[in-house]
């Protein structure tokens, strides 16, 4: 069987896994973004807080994903829960770091003017600071998404959903019929999905970043 015959043969199943893969990554990214931006907002004014938050979230990234899943499974069982927790944890660093960088990059004169004309603290944050930090935050979320696309494949180890299932099956059956095809189909699928998502991010950027701060 050629590779394309294999793909045609298993098309429905591959599409289903691809959808699960994307949906897991997107949901985990949204969660990571909500938590990460929250952490960024909370710590960005304090250099110490920023350093601690960045160090902690980078420390998470240095834990091999197998190890993290392996540690989570005894606590959370198999399936979705350990996958979600692991992906959210891995996704935090770029978002936290970029939120801090973005918020600290807001010109003091702009912040001063916002306070000076009578905006409340919450108003300054939501109507000025977050808007100006948005390109940086979005870039962080974009990097997290790309990272999570790959890491999500490993979730198959915890019986999580997604294209990782194909890759794992292919690798464990190495040598038997279609094993390579199966691993390649899973990998290629992830790469294509990652590119698609990246394109969507570019579009989101176009429509949500003010023309006044877009570099063009």
């Amino acid at each position: 069987m050629t590779f394309w015959d294999f793909v045609a043969d298993r098309w429905n199943r591959l599409v289903g896994e691809a959808l699960l893969h994307v949906s897991a990554v997107v949901q985990c990214t949204v969660l990571a973004a909500a938590i990460g931006v929250g952490i960024g907002i909370a710590v960005h004014r304090s250099p110490l807080g920023s350093a601690v938050a960045t160090a902690l979230t980078s420390a998470i990234l240095t834990i091999p994903s197998f190890a993290l899943l392996g540690l989570l499974i005894p606590v959370l069982g198999l399936g979705a829960p350990p996958t979600v927790v692991a992906l959210v944890l891995y996704g935090l660093l770029p978002i936290v770091r970029n939120t801090i960088v973005g918020l600290n990059g807001v010109d003091t004169s702009v912040r001063d003017a916002a306070r000076g004309i009578g905006m409340s603290r919450a108003g300054v944050l939501t109507r000025v600071e977050l808007r100006l930090a948005w390109p940086a935050i979005l870039a962080g979320v974009r990097i997290s998404t790309q990272m999570l696309m790959g890491i999500a494949a490993i979730a198959a180890y915890a019986r999580g959903p997604g294209l990782g299932v194909e890759i794992f099956a292919g690798l464990t059956r190495a040598g038997s019929a279609n094993a390579t095809n199966q691993a390649i189909a899973g990998t290629l699928g992830i790469v294509i999905l990652a590119l698609l998502l990246d394109g969507i991010f570019a579009l989101v950027g176009r429509y949500t970043v003010s023309r006044g701060i877009r570099g063009e």
Partner: peptide, 9 residues
């Protein structure tokens, strides 16, 4: 203020 402090966005 100096630098105007306009909201760039």
């Amino acid at each position: 203020i100096q630098q105007a402090g306009l909201f760039p966005h």
